[in-house]
Amino acid sequence: MLVYNAAQNLQDVPEYSGLSEEKIGELVALADHPDHVPQVIQKVRALGIRLVVVPNLSQCPVDGIADWDAQGRPYIGLSLRYGKIDNFWFVLLHELSHIMREHRDAGPDCQEDQFMQNQDQEKEANDDAARWLIQPELLDDFIWNGDFSEGAIKAFASQLGRHEAIVIGRLKFLHYVPWNRFAKSHVSIRDHLEDFVLKDPV
């Protein structure tokens, strides 16, 4: 209810008129630097999606949620549970996939939760987020090359127009890079979201 109520209280959000891959592509073009995060929040809201950001809630450890309110308006809640740029982008795009594909009652998305409320929808949203961030064929070519040095990763990220943490996060998920490597690359975006975070959640 926290996210739902906060979404209801957002002002100056236009009517939702649909979400396309082209519009998502315009958002992802900003995934190269943490300074763009506030602009991304504003652009999502400008699409008619009521996006709210909440702190890390210990009693409800989730990354994101997407659904429609009683008036049929889409809303998204993002948590600062991790607060890193790569997590922010993956979770945001995952939730945008739910909206674009009109997955109703998608439920909260908790990355450690082994139980998926709808496995097909969750897989579809995960696949969308992954390919929107890094084109699969380009990732396959990079992996085939086999150079996972910091320099090679940064060059690949620059080629993609993505922050290096996004590439590193994917390589870690796919077990090509150990989880304890390049930790400093996973920069925080908490300060960039300070003006958007819901204050004093109940």
Rank of each mutant, 00 (worst) to 15 (best):
D141M: 12
G83V: 10
E122K: 10
G151L: 04
L78K: 08
W144E: 09
D147L: 06
W132N: 07
Q71D: 13
W144Q: 12
M1V: 10
D200S: 14
E95W: 11
A129L: 13
V53M: 08
P74L: 07
D147M: 09
V28Q: 06
G161P: 04
G48R: 13
P55E: 06
E21Y: 14
G72H: 09
N118I: 00
V53K: 06
P201K: 11
E137T: 15
H175L: 03
A66V: 04
N5A: 09
S79W: 06
M116V: 01
H186S: 15
H163I: 03
V13A: 09
P201T: 09
Q159K: 14
G107K: 10
I153Q: 11
I49C: 10
K199S: 06
L138R: 15
R131A: 06
V13R: 11
W68E: 04
E112F: 15
D32C: 06
R131N: 06
M116H: 14
I134M: 05
G48I: 04
G161D: 05
S17N: 12
R170C: 00
S97M: 04
Y75T: 04
D69C: 12
A31S: 15
P201V: 11
D120F: 14
D63I: 03
D105T: 01
Q42F: 05
V91N: 08
L198N: 02
V44D: 04
H192W: 08
A6E: 13
A66W: 12
S158A: 09
V52M: 05
S149K: 07
D113P: 00
M100E: 10
R101S: 02
Q117S: 05
A31D: 07
R104P: 00
W132C: 04
F196L: 00
S188G: 03
V13G: 10
Q71W: 11
N9D: 14
K184E: 01
Y75F: 15
R170H: 01
H163E: 02
P74H: 10
L160I: 06
A152M: 04
A129Y: 10
A29V: 06
F90G: 00
A125E: 02
V177E: 05
D127P: 00
D113M: 15
L133A: 03
A46P: 00
G64F: 13
L198H: 06
H33Q: 15
I189R: 11
A155N: 08
S158T: 10
R170G: 00
H36S: 11
P136R: 13
A66T: 05
L96R: 13
P74G: 05
P55R: 14
S20W: 11
R101C: 02
P136H: 11
L138V: 01
V52C: 01
G25P: 10
S158C: 03
I166M: 05
K154A: 07
A157K: 03
I143E: 03
V28M: 10
D191P: 05
P108Y: 03
V54S: 05
C110K: 14
I153S: 01
P74V: 02
A125R: 10
D12S: 08
V167C: 04
V13W: 08
V44I: 09
Y4C: 01
V52R: 08
I134F: 10
A183L: 15
P201F: 11
G64V: 14
D141F: 12
R50Y: 09
V91M: 07
A70W: 08
F88N: 02
